Computed example of a mutant assay.
Amino acid sequence: MLRGFYTAASGMMANQRMQETLSNNLSNAYTPGFKSDQGTMRAFPELLIQQMGQTSVPTSNGGLNLPTQKQIGSLHTGVYMQETVPKFSQGDLRETGIETDLALLNGNLPDENGFLFFNVQNEAGELRYTRNGNFTVDGQGFLTTNQGYYVLDDAGNPIQTGGMEFDVSDNGTVNVNGANIPLGISYTPNSFDLVKGGNGLYAPGENAVPLVDARLGQGINFNIQQGFVERSNVDPAQAMTEMMNTYRSFELNQRVLKAYDQSMQKTVTEIARLG
Rank of each mutant, 00 (worst) to 15 (best):
M1K: 02
L2H: 03
G4L: 01
T7R: 00
A8E: 01
A8P: 07
A9S: 12
S10M: 05
G11H: 05
M12P: 05
R17M: 13
Q19S: 12
T21N: 03
L22M: 05
S27V: 01
Y30M: 12
G39K: 04
M41A: 13
Q54A: 14
S56P: 10
V57S: 12
S60G: 13
N61E: 15
N61W: 14
N65G: 07
P67G: 06
T68K: 13
Q71Y: 15
G73C: 08
S74L: 12
P86A: 08
S89G: 08
E95A: 14
T96K: 08
E99Y: 12
T100F: 10
D111M: 10
D111R: 04
V120I: 01
N122I: 00
E123H: 15
A124F: 15
A124D: 13
R128P: 00
T130K: 11
T130S: 07
R131H: 02
R131K: 03
N132P: 02
F135L: 07
Q140P: 10
G141I: 11
G148F: 10
Y149G: 05
Y150W: 02
D153N: 13
D153L: 05
D154L: 06
I159S: 01
M164V: 11
E165W: 10
V168C: 00
V168I: 05
N171P: 04
V176P: 03
I181E: 03
G184Q: 06
S186Q: 11
Y187N: 04
Y187C: 09
P189E: 07
N190V: 14
S191W: 04
D193I: 14
V195Y: 06
G198H: 08
Y202E: 06
P204G: 06
E206F: 10
A208M: 06
V209Y: 02
V209S: 05
L211G: 04
V212T: 09
R215V: 03
L216W: 11
G219Y: 09
I220W: 00
N221G: 13
N221F: 15
F222G: 06
F228I: 09
S232D: 05
N233W: 00
P236G: 02
A237T: 13
M240G: 03
M240N: 07
T241Y: 06
E242H: 10
E242L: 11
Y247T: 14
L252G: 04
Q254V: 13
K258N: 13
A259Y: 10
T267G: 02
T267C: 04
I271F: 09
A272Q: 15
G275Y: 14
